[in-house]
Nucleic acid binder design. Structure first.
Length: 498
RNA sequence: GUCCCCAUCGUCUAGUGGUUAGGACACCGCCCUUUCACGGCGGCAACACGGGUUCGAUCCCCGUUGGGGAUGCCA
């Protein structure tokens, strides 16, 4: 589908944790760019850290991507012309390119151990100096010295010989011109002593070899970019365009972390957030459709409007309230059929089903029952997880009960008496062997209230809690219709006796 | 410490060298109403500070302050 001129972008997570919102946002912007330009979206796994990479993380990241609907054109389980897409399977490629660098004199062996470096740093700092990073000790080793170290079997890493003068700069898609003085750059390691390339080297090799045209990543990579540019230069490769997006902060403007609440994408899934809503909200963090345009958008609408030029350069704070709002808006805009599909797994999970003995007016199977339940629920359905509390009492006596509401509306003597009176009125005024419509319940309640000389609300509020266990619900007459006359009477009596 | 980035309502943001600085979330009030939610109406609330440039700066430049990032043989 992609032509030679279309962009190729990638998301390159390291499998050292779950897919968190920051990573998901980065992935999303890349994905949106690819989809909006007819380009290719590549998923590459950067698992060059043998210590921290795990299979679980790898699987979790893939799950997160799939849940959010970010399909990749090339990558794990999908293949592609530029594979393999796991860096741990590309070691030969990195070694080959390292050789090129070594031959050109751009890379050199460094025999300094971590302890050596630490000792030198301490020495300098003890003398009030500042350690600015690797000091270039092995830069000028003679062939004899190198031979001696190798003969002694000293482990070594490879470092890039970086330019000492001038500056390295690029025009960032988001941040515009960025420039760094070369003299401040140290010769960082590109190949570790364990035989694996460092991120700095692998990312450059892969982005080049995979034909990546645009690198969109978090701005925590800004200071890595000049070094990577130096690798491109040493390899005599053309560098891709870079775009650094600001990071996502917590509500307190501090770096987003677990203490702020959910940070992994899968946590939001378990909190009942719709993937489309999560995608929508993430897109709004650092990007905007502009002006007074509707913020609530489907994936397709976002793709249509997406533009790199509109990416914000200032960091955004994650707002859980707004996410909840976007989520409810998405649910609100769903058709009855779509809502039904979302709700089905919830009742299936607890084996909730219609019992024909309930004698529900106009309902003959579980699906049509659920459909009616969702119908009277209306816009109170705003989250997949809280939905269970809103509909449980229609299916089971073991439903959620709000203790506070019960204490306030059911426990008082007067309330109990009222419930008994109403239960009797329903028993005598209605045929319990026939399914009854909401209007019939309304009639009984209103006339009973009149006979008692009280407002209908006096009966309605305790009834609501007695039937639903909660002080908030859909219209009580409709609730009674769908709970059925028999169970309604039973619950009113049970509540009065509780 | 050094280097880099950022700065419009509490939050996400739109926006322009001259605007009543717009929208959304949250919050408050009113309406609707059997509760809640929805919906409708209204309200509160911002250009961080100090210098320039300019006839005029929220917008351009510099500085300060604040926040963030980097400074790893992590990615």
């Amino acid at each position: 589908m992609s032509n030679p001129n279309s962009p190729r972008v990638r998301f390159a997570p390291s499998p050292t944790g779950f897919l968190h919102v920051g990573g998901a946002r980065t992935a999303l912007f890349n994905w949106l760019y690819a989809r909006s330009q007819g380009g290719a979206f590549v998923l590459r796994i950067e698992d060059t850290d043998q210590e921290r990479s795990t299979e679980e993380s790898y699987a979790a990241i893939l799950r997160g991507m799939q849940w959010l609907g970010m399909d990749w054109d090339e990558g794990p389980h999908r293949g592609g012309d530029f594979g393999p897409y796991l860096q741990s399977e590309r070691l030969d490629i990195y070694r080959k390119h390292l050789e090129t660098l070594a031959e050109g004199g751009h890379a050199y062996k460094c025999f300094c151990s971590a302890d050596d470096l630490e000792a030198r740093q301490e020495e300098i700092e003890a003398d009030e100096g500042t350690w600015a990073g690797y000091d270039g000790q092995c830069r000028h080793l003679t062939t004899e010295e190198i031979a001696a170290q190798e003969a002694a079997g000293t482990p070594f890493a490879w470092r890039l010989r970086t330019p000492d003068e001038g500056s390295t700069f690029w025009y960032d898609i988001v941040l515009d011109k960025l420039e760094f003085q070369n003299e401040l750059m140290v010769d960082r390691v590109i190949f570790k002593a364990d035989g694996f390339p460092t991120y700095q080297f692998a990312v450059v090799v892969d982005d080049h070899d995979m034909g990546i045209t645009h690198v969109l990543r978090g701005d925590d990579h800004v200071s890595n970019t000049p070094f990577q540019l130096m690798i491109y230069n040493a390899m005599e490769w053309k560098a891709p365009k870079f775009g650094h997006m600001p990071m996502i902060l917590g509500p307190d403007k501090k770096r987003l972390s677990k203490r702020h609440g959910a940070t992994s994408v899968e946590e939001f899934q378990t909190q009942g957030i719709l993937p489309a809503a999560m995608t929508n909200y993430l897109a709004l963090l650092g990007w905007s459709p502009g002006g007074n345009a509707d913020e609530v958008m489907t994936r397709d609408a976002i793709i249509k409007k997406f533009s790199l030029k509109k990416i914000n350069s200032s960091p955004a704070a994650f707002d859980y309230d707004k996410l909840a709002h976007i989520n409810s808006e998405h649910i609100k805009r769903l058709s009855a059929e779509e809502r039904l599909e979302l709700a089905k797994p919830i009742i299936a999970r607890d084996n909730w089903a219609l019992d024909t003995d309930w004698l529900i007016h106009g309902v003959d199977d579980t699906e049509s029952y659920l459909n009616r339940v969702l119908g009277i629920l209306g816009n109170r359905f705003s989250n997949l997880v809280t939905l269970a509390n809103h509909i449980g009492f229609f299916f089971t006596e073991e439903h959620f009960v709000d203790a506070e509401a019960w204490k306030e509306h059911v426990t008082p003597e007067a309330a109990r008496a009222t419930l008994v009176t109403l239960a009797k009125a329903i028993e005598t005024g209605m045929d319990l062997d026939v399914a009854q419509p909401a209007s019939a319940f309304e009639e009984v309640i209103r006339s009973t209230a009149e006979e008692m000389g009280v407002k209908a609300g006096e009966l309605i509020h305790p009834s609501r809690v007695a039937l639903t266990g909660q002080s908030r619900s859909a219209g009580i007459f409709e609730v009674m219709e769908l709970v059925g006359a028999r169970r309604t009477v039973a619950r009113l009596k049970n509540a009065a006796n509780s």
